[in-house]
Design a protein around this nucleic acid. Sequence first.
RNA 1: GCGGGUGUGGCGGAAUGGUAGACGCGACGGACUCAAAAUCCGUUUCUGGCGACAGAGUGUCGGUUCGAGUCCGACCACCCGCACCA
Length: 868
Amino acid sequence: MTDATPETRSAELRHDFKTAEPRWQAEWERRGCFTVPDVPDGTKPKYYVLEMFPYPSGKIHMGHVRNYTLGDVVARYKRARGHQVMHPMGWDAFGLPAENAARERGIHPGTWTYQNIANMRAELQRMGLSLEWAREFATCDPEYYGQQQKLFLDFYRAGLVERKESWVNWDPVDGTVLANEQVIDGRGWRSGALVEKKKLSQWFFSITKYAPDLLEALEKLDRWPERVKLMQANWIGRSEGARVRFKLAEAVAGLEDEVEVFTTRPDTLYGMSFLAVAAEHPLAAAAGAKDPGAAEFIAECRRMGTSEAAIEQAEKRGYDTGFRVAHPFLPGVTFPVWIANFVLMEYGTGAIFGCPAHDERDFEFATKYGLAITQVVRPPEEGAAVTLPFTDPGVAVNSGPLDGLPTAEAKRAAIARLEESGQGTGVVNWRLRDWGVSRQRYWGCPIPFIHCEACGVVPVPDDQLPVKLPEDVDFSKPGNPLDNHPSWKHVACPSCGKDAVRETDTCDTFVDSSWYFARFCSPRAALPVTRAAVDAWLPVDQYIGGIEHAILHLLYSRFFTRGMRDTGHLELAEPFAGLFTQGMVTHESYKGADGRWLYPEEVEFSLAVDGSRSATVKGSKEPVTIGRVEAMSKSKRNTVDPGAIIDKYGADTARWFILSDNPPERDMEWTEAGVAGAYRFSQRLYRLVAGALPGLAPAGDLAEGAADEARKLRQVTHRTIAAVTEALESFGFNVAVARIHEFANAIAESAETGPAKREALETIARLISPMMPHLAEELWSLLRPGEAKLVAELPWPEADPALLRAETLTLAVQVLGKLRGTIEVPVDADEATIFALAEAEENVARSIAGRSIRKRIHVPGRVVNFVV
RNA sequence: GCGGGUGUGGCGGAAUGGUAGACGCGACGGACUCAAAAUCCGUUUCUGGCGACAGAGUGUCGGUUCGAGUCCGACCACCCGCACCA
């Protein structure tokens, strides 16, 4: 060692992550470090860590790396804290991209999907995640979706599934239903054809039955981010009001003689000046049937499509149908019925009464079409000036019997009058609508029903499950391949035995992800779940994923869990006790002179004297514009391939950088300099340990009353344990990283060479283990060669309370709240001594000089302040 | 428009009402080297001063307090979500 040159020495003290990382991954696997039983034995508390499972696109991206690193830190930490940790992984494997691949490249969706899964599994395994791969499944496995079909039928029998008509975006060229995001500027994204609204019979989950519970239970989710709960509450959208029935002034052929309206302001009924219905409303259809102008207006509204309405910034437009309705309180008074483009068929009853004086939209509409504007609410302060529309609560005026009542009371009184006369009722309205799950696609879970001319809709008997997708499918024809298949859908009716056809719709892929967390508890069971397993493991203690799933996925999962409870599959309502939503991974973007986006690896940088950075294209030296830092995306080409990073720096470095950059709930910026810094630190730790090995004291003889230097180092060691533990408990991973940096600095600076040094080094190896698990094992094996247990099998280090206490304290001394100096005092010093020491401090004395102290303040352990 | 969040050095950020800027990145200076890489040491909020030190400073304005990045009020900016929800 002594005659080694610096070069060879530093070469020796280099952590070879390329061989070490796969070696430790294999060792964890061999020892089954992350394996847990379906039904735990109860000797340890259980902890279920889950990250949102990925769609198998073929490659992992930095968002996955961040998500799974965060989850892995929690899993490894909780394991060390003595929990039995379940940490599974699977694949959200159904969906459109597989069908697109089939159309574009002639590869079967299943083949494509399973190839992608194999690639992504290998990439995830390189990250050194403490996952239990034995629980892996893909939602496109018949063993999984067959059980999903069973759940579907159970829900059906429990009255949680309904078949009803609903409007869809229909692409007439492709002959298919489009999702809202597949409609671009009113045209199909693939065919470019004008999209039509069409009514189809579809399958629905009755999520609205649980709306009150889904809303109220949010309050009890105390480990969910407030904003996610708020977004869900808004989505569920409870509002109190009244349904009011307006009698048509004259009968309309084929229609009831009333129009029902939902309002939150029944107190403004006396200010009504018109009634408006949505273009899809039956009354609008009746008007269209007799009036070509109305028909034309309805067609125009329909062309606007669902997604475009927002873009259009919709000018309010309407058409007078010529129908009139009677006012519920004013005999003989009638108002015109309009079709209006701002009335939504999906909300409330698809009809409103217009009170222009007290509603922004109605005001705009009435102004445009010259309709009456009658004020019926005045501000609470008598005589205050009003500008209409006045939408705040106030006091009713011009409202007959309601006059003088404050808005809240006026509402109650109006509802009472409506109920008395049978013209309306007080109701609670919900924005949440039933969940339409029908998709006219091949690559999804077949909905297990059979249509029989004689028996109607018949569920597939349990013993005929799973209804498997046919392998031989033709994607060359437009429309649903299942529907086009020559034989698949033709079956005998299970009830009467006559010729019948299968349902050819498949499930929305959100269904697949609404119960996978339950399936993980017993992934090979012959039932959807086994009670003992879900009873033991659920709820998920910590769920981690992107904020983009704040509403739909999480709400559907909450619904599904309730449905499974009510069909006897499990015993709880809330699947995720703790939720953490991570920020995005962002990166600078680069644009070439020709306006083309460039990948980071195509660009090189130089630094001007003034510190400004400029960029050129590698090789050609063409100038490059450095663009905004934004979310990594393929279109902006500002992506970094995790595989390439792991090749260059190793998984530990990638994990460490991701954790160190900033708090995990915020967006992080991926920078080459940042990763390089993390890499340097990993090597520094290795040198710190490997360099100390020669002559390092053996373990186990931490003598009491050791030398000063040893005690100082031990205090740092134990304070670091406490600080890192606290940081990990609160998702403060960047702070944990900072504390470990400080610890490494302290070890390097310490003159200690005895057992306290060994203790410090062993501690740092164990503290990094949730974040850099491979390096932790490597350091541990250097420090304890031949040790039976891996770091992954060790308990978390305990801080010794005796070492957390200090003998002396540093107190800040302020004069009039301004810092003038610091003093060192023994922890047990009394106040008088402290004040004396503080006043004697040189700089403090100078500030006080010539003035008298009026007040002395002492906050123990913190500060002394003199008021002069 | 409504709702929510965030504003701290060149950058990411730290800070139970008690020494603002921990830790890292970047930058600058130095050591080692024939040289570079790697590594190590130092400096790095701004202004004044050789220095000890003094003054200012956490988006803006005001308030509470012995003491405010932190609490309260008003405002500004940016980000996110929902958006004709009757």
